[in-house]
């Protein structure tokens, strides 16, 4: 038997593959592709305490081997989620991770407190959204701000708390260390890289928000590097993401130091990518005589 189970901050995932926040809604949209129970976990669409309309369109721009988005955290708010989406999710045998966001620290705290009473398994504190004017990445781009918000939310979060880090910083590992010191149970990285495209005929940015987050295979090497740097500096589990599209990428990310991985943009061109990654990893482990996936974590042999 090959073991694919991983443990992140006391929560057991049946495999290390999690669908990334903002790419998988609240799960329902993909239930006709495969049972959600195949997934290690689902990081749910970023949520705020109150409903949020998000940014005006266009919100999407294609780029070489990737895309920009500036959705701006559109979501129905926590009460709507608890009433209409949580009952459905409760029936799905997979780990439910609530991605929580807000425009001020109080919003995050209120959301964490409210969701602590629900059947959510873990929190993913989103301090790295590049597409909102208030809050979002502002909390995640300095050690001071990141420490402060993690310290405050920690008081209200009664579930294990992952902190999702922004790559748009000088030294991501120091931010990871700062949130670890304040009680983060795990870190996930990377969120999108801030980018921009311009229509040369209209001289207008393609995104109405002018700038947006870059994701897709284009950012994979950046993500691997950052996961490697962070994993070398913290003791808490690391969840790696950014451009993973196939099982080889997932193995590589785990060798860089990730204890689990998330898949996002790849699902837009291949909705079955998470399943193919799970199956591919399992086969690779068998082919290489490795009995436990945890054995490969951080096994890169740097020069």
């Amino acid at each position: 038997m090959t073991n694919l189970k991983v443990n992140i901050a006391g929560v057991e995932l049946k495999n290390p593959v999690i669908t990334a926040s903002g790419c998988f809604g609240f799960g329902r949209e993909y239930e006709c592709m495969y049972p959600l129970s195949r997934l290690g976990g689902i990081s749910l669409k970023g949520m705020t305490f109150q409903e949020k309309l998000g940014n005006p369109p266009p919100r999407i721009a294609e780029t070489p081997s990737g895309m920009l988005n500036s959705v701006g955290l559109q979501n129905p708010g926590v009460e709507h989620f608890l009433q209409y989406d949580m009952p459905y999710l409760s029936q799905q045998d997979t780990v439910k991770i609530a991605n929580i966001a807000g425009s001020c620290v109080e919003d995050y705290c209120a959301l964490a407190e409210r969701l602590s009473e629900s059947e959510i398994d873990m929190f993913e504190l989103n301090i790295s959204c590049p597409n909102v004017k208030q809050g979002g990445a502002a909390f995640g781009t300095s050690c001071e701000n990141a420490s402060h918000i993690v310290r405050e939310v920690r008081k209200y979060a009664k579930k294990p708390m992952i902190v999702k880090l922004s790559p748009n910083v000088t030294d991501i590992a120091s931010i990871a260390q700062a949130v670890e010191a304040e009680g983060a149970d795990a870190v996930s990285l990377i969120n999108t890289l801030l980018g921009m495209r311009i229509d040369i005929n209209t001289r207008r940015p393609i995104l109405h928000n002018n700038v947006g987050g870059l994701s897709g295979p284009a950012i994979f090497p950046v993500a691997v590097r950052m996961v490697w740097q962070v994993a070398n500096r913290v003791k808490i589990p690391v969840i790696g993401m950014g451009g993973i599209e196939k099982w080889q990428d997932a193995i590589e990310m785990m060798m860089a130091g990730a204890n689990a991985i998330q898949i996002g943009a790849a699902m837009f061109y291949n909705p079955k990518a998470p399943i193919e990654v799970i199956d591919g990893m399992e086969q690779w482990l068998k082919d290489n005589g490795i009995k436990d996936i945890n054995e490969i974590v951080g096994t890169v042999k740097p020069w």
């Binding site: 903002g22 790419c23 998988f24 809604g25 949209e29 993909y30 669409k45 998000g54 369109p57 266009p58 919100r59 999407i60 721009a61 895309m67 988005n69 959705v71 559109q74 393609i206 943009a265 699902m267 837009f268 909705p271």
Partner: peptide, 12 residues
């Protein structure tokens, strides 16, 4: 401009 096509990403 559309990404997922199924209502998951809220891009369009």
């Amino acid at each position: 401009r559309m990404a997922c096509g199924v209502g998951a990403c809220l891009g369009c």
